[in-house]
């Protein structure tokens, strides 16, 4: 435990974080690109078409991992926001805002790809279904967090205000997840389960697992890249940042 706290404090210092991010960003992105290639090839060309939905079902290989990420990123962001508020660790404030941009991207992808799937399947681009509506609310919460952060001039006050909004917005995460159980919805119920038997055929499952891994690796690379950029902007007047800029000239 002591070693973990020491590692956390050491990595959390801005110059150390810059070095740590520079080392890990390429690794996570290479893993993400490899998984994306395999998962996309599998989802588009290797698995057979669904017996009921036909080819349109192939959208699930991007829609479902993106939807999982929209919730996963929010939970990670809330953990960072909590640490930022309680222990006032600067790097956690930065990571909170970095997470918000990635979460926004995945939520937008979820809604758009879901809508594209919905048109031929349900006959409508959009319906005010509880799952769709709560996911749209999630998108607005992400936008609100980014907007609030950008509206306050002092970066540390802005990050703290945004962190409060993250913790308030956390209430929407279980609403999105359980919306298909709590209400009678058009959206299909839980198909894939971590514990228990999934309703999806096993031969159709592997690209989904690979794409899920890809989005997780992507998140790790992207959050480090975004946090690295913000960290450098915050520390622009420090000697280490000037030395870094000169060394990269």
């Amino acid at each position: 435990m002591k070693a973990l706290i020491i590692w956390f404090n050491t990595t959390g210092s801005p110059p150390n974080f810059e070095r740590y991010a520079a080392r890990w960003i390429p690794i996570w992105f290479v893993l993400a690109f490899v998984c994306l290639l395999i998962g996309t090839a599998g989802g588009l060309f290797m698995v057979p078409a669904d017996s009921k939905q036909g080819e349109i079902f192939r959208i699930i290989y991007i829609h479902v991992p993106a939807a999982w990420m929209s919730l996963f990123v929010f939970i990670v962001m809330a953990a960072q926001a909590f640490i930022a508020l309680v222990w006032r660790i600067k790097i956690c404030e930065i990571l909170t805002i970095a997470c918000a941009h990635i979460g926004l991207m995945f939520t937008a992808v979820t809604l758009i790809t879901g809508s594209i799937w919905g048109k031929p399947t349900w006959g409508a681009w959009w319906t005010w279904d509880p799952r769709l509506t709560s996911e749209l609310v999630l998108l607005f919460i992400y936008l609100g967090i980014i907007g609030l952060y950008n509206a306050i001039e002092d970066r540390r006050s802005a990050a703290r205000a945004a962190a409060f909004l993250v913790l308030i917005g956390l209430i929407n995460v279980p609403i999105v997840h359980f919306s298909v159980t709590w209400w009678n919805t058009l959206h299909q119920g839980e198909t894939i389960r971590i514990v228990g038997e999934s309703k999806m055929a096993t031969e159709l499952m592997w690209p989904l697992i690979v794409m899920t891994l890809a989005t997780k690796f992507w998140f790790l690379g992207s959050v480090l890249q975004r946090a690295r950029t913000m960290n450098l902007a915050h520390e622009a007047n420090k000697d280490w940042a000037k030395k870094l800029a000169e060394s990269k000239q």
Binding site: L44, E55, R58, T113
Partner: peptide, 24 residues
């Protein structure tokens, strides 16, 4: 009858790719 809906699938994957490119 199974419909192809190739344009819908392509549109979804292009949007996903564009979002990742922007994020990268």
């Amino acid at each position: 009858m199974i419909h192809l809906h190739g344009e819908f699938v392509a549109a979804a994957y292009i949007i996903f790719a564009l979002a990742l490119l922007w994020d990268y």
